[in-house]
Design a binder for these strands. Sequence first.
DNA 1: CATTAATATGTTCTATATAAACATTATTAT
DNA 2: ATAATAATGTTTATATAGAACATATTAATG
Lengths: 252, 252
Amino acid sequence: MSPKERRSKIMESLATEGRVDIIQLSVVLNVTPMTIRRDFDVLEKQNKLIRTHGGAVPSQALIHEKTFELKSNISVQEKKMIAKHAVSFVSDGMTVLIDSGTTTLEIARLLKTHEQITVITNDIKIAAELMGSKLEVIILGGRLQTETGTLYGSLTENILKSIHVDLFFLGANAIHSSFGITTPTIDKSSLKREMIRTATETILVADSTKFNQKAFSKVCDLEDVSTIITDQQLSEELMEKYSELAEIIIAE
Amino acid sequence: MSPKERRSKIMESLATEGRVDIIQLSVVLNVTPMTIRRDFDVLEKQNKLIRTHGGAVPSQALIHEKTFELKSNISVQEKKMIAKHAVSFVSDGMTVLIDSGTTTLEIARLLKTHEQITVITNDIKIAAELMGSKLEVIILGGRLQTETGTLYGSLTENILKSIHVDLFFLGANAIHSSFGITTPTIDKSSLKREMIRTATETILVADSTKFNQKAFSKVCDLEDVSTIITDQQLSEELMEKYSELAEIIIAE
DNA sequence: CATTAATATGTTCTATATAAACATTATTAT
DNA sequence: ATAATAATGTTTATATAGAACATATTAATG
């Protein structure tokens, strides 16, 4: 039996029994108590259970897995796909900066079960999503845009100047082959620019509807991001056009 | 302190901190670990907590009952009363810093309808409450305590050093005539101290159950706050005792 | 297919927490 | 005041957790 299988069986027991005993599990699953302990360690880090003395109980996070709806033009499914590819760039020990947005929110959801990752964000909805997780979460301070939950302004930018991250997931309103990446307000573009500056690597996550669009204020050129992740709705024509400017990954 | 009181304090810690440690509790509550264990036994049988190795976490049942913390000691009504008196200190154009906490959350709720006020906070639940308002809201950055939604740490304190506010609403876990104001963790007390420092005036808001209590780490002396607002449950005896140390307002 | 690297599991040992039994101290009732 | 009861402290034995190391299994590579 694979570790994955065994852990799945542990979770099953946990769900049906309400609590499990290390010794009992070790007998049933034919492994030593130590192995069960190590399984508990793994599952606890994923917030799936709470270890007790001699056993474990289900975690509260597991009880109410509520996924509240997002409003968006593109299906959630596509954003989830993009997010799934995005998180494959993240590995243990990394410091990851996550921009505000709906696609980036999906990234945060997927990262929630990871371990050993520091997440930094300027979006309090992302922060809310990460409540209850075992991640190290840093919120950038700043002015709150009360309609969207985004933090921005000079305070936010100043804080960014004092930190550095390995990876930045950039969200975008508009992407254009010659105009580059643009946003509706100068504040936001200035902030995103600062975020790019402070990151070793920037990955742009944007669904296909954002391509060939331009907004008011320029963030950066396409050359400034290392990778673009988008969905399979991107036309062949656009795909070729943008491939010359940046590495494009189609999430499917 | 009676066993009932002590158990109530354990539950309070559990609600605010998310998890408690037997040794730390035994130090704070001045009893042996064995006594805490016996308290855990009692509380576990009442389904109020789950024992872990070396400590305890709140039971699932309690997590979902948001009312638990409020219902256990003092009614929401009393916190609302305190908040109502608190906001009378706020006038247009002011910059107000709001500490994390349930009473301070009520203050934020009342301020929501104001317009010409700048609110600064380290609590993302307060931030969430102020979403959609016309207020100028500033979130202090920092490390997120994912169980409670509180921001803290050196980053938070550094940001505080670069700003200044007119008024600070301080929340407290424990108030004692000789020990002053204390909190369960050093991180929190350090942050609160910095908040006090950066404010022209500090008002302590705390329901009557917080009086004559001590927690682990000292924030400041009672002389360091200009006013204390509490509820009418405060006994005559305590009222007189604390009146000598600070101006006390009974919200009724 | 053999060999290496990586992962998973088992074993042993030590530190720590738990739990039981008993002793002591507070509370309460009579 | 005294006895009875409850609460807490103390000591000791047992069990668990966790670290460190050894072994086995699986995956990856040439």
